[in-house]
Write a protein that binds this DNA or RNA. Structure first.
Lengths: 139, 139
DNA sequence: ATAAAATGTTACACTTACTGTAACAATTAT
DNA sequence: ATAATTGTTACAGTAAGTGTAACATTTTAT
């Protein structure tokens, strides 16, 4: 599951939880609503539980509920919850060329560049709340 | 080969070509220098040829040479040459949930968001020239 | 207590994609 | 002609992703 798919799946689930708050909803019901496999969805929701965006309760009356109001949830924390890997990431394959020193320096250069880009991306996502997303897809 | 790996491989190759300009260098020599497979490198270099960043000549005295001076080559055009896929991309799996309309709207929302992010990334890369990269990894 | 239903995690077969290497056709200077 | 190059294709081997099911744990209702 790619980063973007995980993110959009999480947002879909959160939007459904927001619309049906404060009743807890089961993974089965959410999965049917947004059209994904319930087991995979539970995996994604477990990340959101760990980052305290949603609360899960087990047992026969259990399910998932939002832990914050939609205007206090922004895309950045959703994204970082469900995707530990960065959008840009270096896969450091072995350095075995003749210019080892320059290769290492270039790797560091790109590491820094990608980190800077990642900050930009997250800054942008931090400005977008779940509430604003819900309003945009309603209209 | 991930996007970042392709980009860094291309920059390594271009840096070597800049250092040894204007003599054409063969893919075998470049590959040995930067430690990658010659065939894979030729694939990457073929992209750079198509976007006119380097010139290739076949035959017994052939090889690759820069087609621009390093201060006229920026990371954005290198990146776009070797990687057609975007950093953030939606994989539109089938829409089969109950809330089809909202799902479509959300997909469009993310498409727009990812496109905006992509613009930011490329704008940042457009400000970085090959010359500046070479100078940074020298010091 | 017992049973039912929920989450959270693991497992697994299947598919898909990726990797590294080699090989071949087309091209060109000697 | 020959040798050496680019550009492309092929292919076996490996790694990763996908979807589904199954199981353990937890918790509520009876």
């Amino acid at each position: 599951m790619s980063a973007s798919t995980k993110l959009s799946t999480a947002v879909k689930a959160l939007s459904y939880l927001a619309a049906s708050a404060p009743d807890p909803k089961t993974s089965t019901e959410i999965a049917e609503q947004i059209g994904v496999n319930a087991s995979k969805l539970r995996k994604i929701l477990s990340y959101l539980v760990k980052s305290k965006i949603v609360i899960s309760t087990q047992g026969i009356t259990g399910g998932f509920t939002l832990n914050k109001s939609p205007d206090q949830i922004h895309l950045q924390e959703i994204y970082c919850s469900v995707e530990e890997r960065k959008a840009f990431h270096m896969d450091f394959t072995g350095i075995n060329g003749k210019s080892v020193s320059q290769t290492k320096k270039l790797n560091n250069f790109f590491l820094q560049l990608f980190a800077d880009i990642q900050v930009d991306i997250e800054d942008r996502m931090r400005l977008i709340t779940l509430k604003s997303v819900i309003e945009q897809i309603k209209s």
